[in-house]
Every structure is written in structure tokens, then in C-alpha cells.
């Protein structure tokens, strides 16, 4: 669906992306993961033409980006950013309706679609339609941001650290809701984050970037268990990554746990059995995470 071919980009003297090749498949959620300054946001912004590569090309549905009318293309790509960027002088309703109006949709159609999407993200038009962005909580605002990005039925949605400014509870909720919508609508989604926990818990695949280069592309498990090089390993070893690892491991573990073990709460032996089978190089970490999880559970 989206194809980066030999992309290179520098800002002034500084090379921010070098020889980037990446294919993002239709309907998958690709997370661009990396520390700040790794070039992940620049990559994302190239997809809707907010940045242009110095060399190489980007193809969307096998058409080179530079051959497409940019303004039309942008209307087909949803865009969600950390600071949301709702228009402060528009009501919630008008904010969501803007892009439909830009596309000259009839007001009747606009109304139907806005109502549908506000409903879908759990904010009713009757309550929220007339509110202004200043009256919304952070979580509400980002839901509106999502509705705005989705209302025109884009094939692609780009998300730049969309949930990182939210409190932990709304962050978890909205993450799951988005994931459901994304699967349901078969959206091709590209999400930028530095939050490993978020990456591994949401991604179909992760593209790990460091110093403007792709280090590894793979499923969360591949990134965790089969780090391709030292750089990925370093990332994996980080504190942040351990937490993520715990979360992923448990997700992986639970289906394997014996049903009676869950009922009897005799989890320990069940986990040990699993770990022997899994032949993981990270036994200790997984085990540690498991005990923590168990403590919380009990």
C-alpha cells in the first residue's frame, strides 16, 4: 500500500533519513518506533507530503507520490497528532465536518457521517456537537481528532504520538478502541511512537529506527526475541522495553496456560511448563513480569 524506496532526507547539514526502504501492507498497523531524533516523524510526514524526500520516492497504491495532486491526496489520508490541532473557533460538529465540506459533500451527508463517527468514538452529537475544543478534556479532544481523521473514510491513517499526552486510563481505552476501528475498517495505519509499550501492544509490525536508519522490521515478537543487531538489542535491554516485554509475554502466555491452572489459580507450574516449551532467551524477564502480574491480579 505504502512503499518507501531509497529515501534520503537531511535538514541542513544533518542527515535525518538514509536509504530507507519499507513496505507497509494494506490493512496493517505499522508502528514506526524509535528514540527522538531517529527520523520516525519525518518518515510519517512524507506520506502526506508534509515533508519531501531529497532522494528516492514514495509510492501509494503503486503510484508515485509526486505524480498525485497533493491536496486531493491529503483529503484521502487521515492525520492525527499528539496536540490534536482542533480548530478552536469551530464547534466539535464543525471540526469533524470540515473535511467533508472541503470535499463539497451535501450538508445532509455531512450530518449523517459526523453523527455516525461521533457516535462511534463514544461522544454523542447531542452532548458534544455544540461544544468548543476549549471545553473538552484531553481524551475527548483526541477522540474528536480521531473522528475528524476518519470521517471522510480514508484508506490510510497516519498517527504521530497520538495518545502520549493522555492520562494512562484514557490512553489504554482509546488505544483499544482505535485498534478495533482500524481492523473493522481495514485501515492501513502508520503510527509513530517512542513508547515501546504502546508499540508492542498495538502493532502488527514494528519498524525500529535509530539514527535515521531502519534497524529491523518485524512483528513485536520478532523484535523482542530475535533482535537483528546490537542496536536493537540495546533498545530491547532498556528499562522501558522490559516493561513492554512483560506485557507482550503475558499476552503470549495466557493462551497457553492450562485452563484448570487459571481456575485453580495454580499459575506457577503452568507458566514454567510454558517457558520450557517456548525456549525463550528471556526466561528470567518473562518470569519476573509474570510474578508482578500475578501480584496485581491477586
Amino acid at each position: 500500500m505504502i512503499n518507501f524506496q531509497n529515501i534520503e532526507k537531511s535538514f541542513g547539514e544533518q542527515l535525518v533519513l538514509k536509504s530507507i526502504n519499507l513496505e507497509i501492507k494494506k490493512g496493517e498497523l505499522m508502528v514506526l518506533l524509535g528514540a527522538s531524533g531517529s527520523g520516525k516523524t519525518t518518515m510519517l510526514r512524507m506520506i502526506n507530503g508534509l515533508e519531501n524526500p531529497d532522494f528516492g520516492s514514495i509510492q501509494i497504491a503503486n503510484k508515485r507520490l509526486e505524480n498525485r495532486p497533493l491536496l486531493e491526496l491529503r483529503k484521502e489520508i487521515g492525520y492525527v497528532i499528539q496536540k490534536v490541532g482542533l480548530f478552536p473557533h469551530y464547534s466539535v460538529y464543525d471540526n469533524v465536518a470540515t473535511i467533508l465540506r472541503l470535499k463539497n459533500e451535501k450538508e445532509q451527508v455531512v450530518k449523517e457521517k459526523v453523527e455516525k463517527w461521533l457516535d462511534k468514538i463514544g461522544l454523542r452529537v447531542s452532548v458534544y456537537g455544540r461544544k468548543f475544543p476549549a471545553e473538552l478534556s484531553g481524551g475527548e479532544a483526541q477522540r474528536i481528532g480521531l473522528a475528524r481523521a476518519l470521517v471522510a473514510k480514508p484508506k490510510i491513517i497516519l498517527l504521530d504520538e497520538p495518545f502520549s499526552a493522555l492520562d494512562p486510563i484514557s490512553r489504554l481505552k482509546i488505544r483499544n478502541e482505535f485498534r478495533e476501528i482500524q481492523k473493522e475498517e481495514k485501515l492501513t495505519a502508520v503510527m509513530v511512537t517512542h513508547d515501546v509499550l504502546e508499540a508492542v501492544s498495538m502493532a502488527d509490525r514494528i519498524c525500529l529506527l535509530a539514527h535515521g536508519e531502519i534497524q529491523q522490521v518485524g512483528t513485536p515478537q520478532e523484535i523482542i526475541y530475535k533482535p537483528k543487531n546490537q542496536s536493537v538489542k540495546e533498545f530491547v535491554k532498556g528499562d522501558q522495553f522490559q516493561a513492554a516485554l512483560a506485557s507482550v509475554s503475558l499476552r503470549e502466555i495466557i493462551p497457553f496456560l492450562k485452563a484448570d491452572a487459571l481456575e485453580n489459580q495454580d499459575l506457577d507450574s503452568s507458566v514454567l511448563d510454558y517457558l520450557q516449551e517456548a525456549d525463550s532467551t528471556y526466561h528470567a524477564i518473562v518470569l519476573n513480569a509474570f510474578y508482578k502480574w500475578k501480584e496485581e491480579l491477586l
Partner: peptide, 8 residues
């Protein structure tokens, strides 16, 4: 940025 990305 939102306005630009929306295709205005």
C-alpha cells in the same frame, strides 16, 4: 498543521 494535512 491539521489544516494543511486536511488538504486545505
Amino acid at each position: 498543521e491539521s489544516a494543511i494535512a486536511m488538504g486545505m
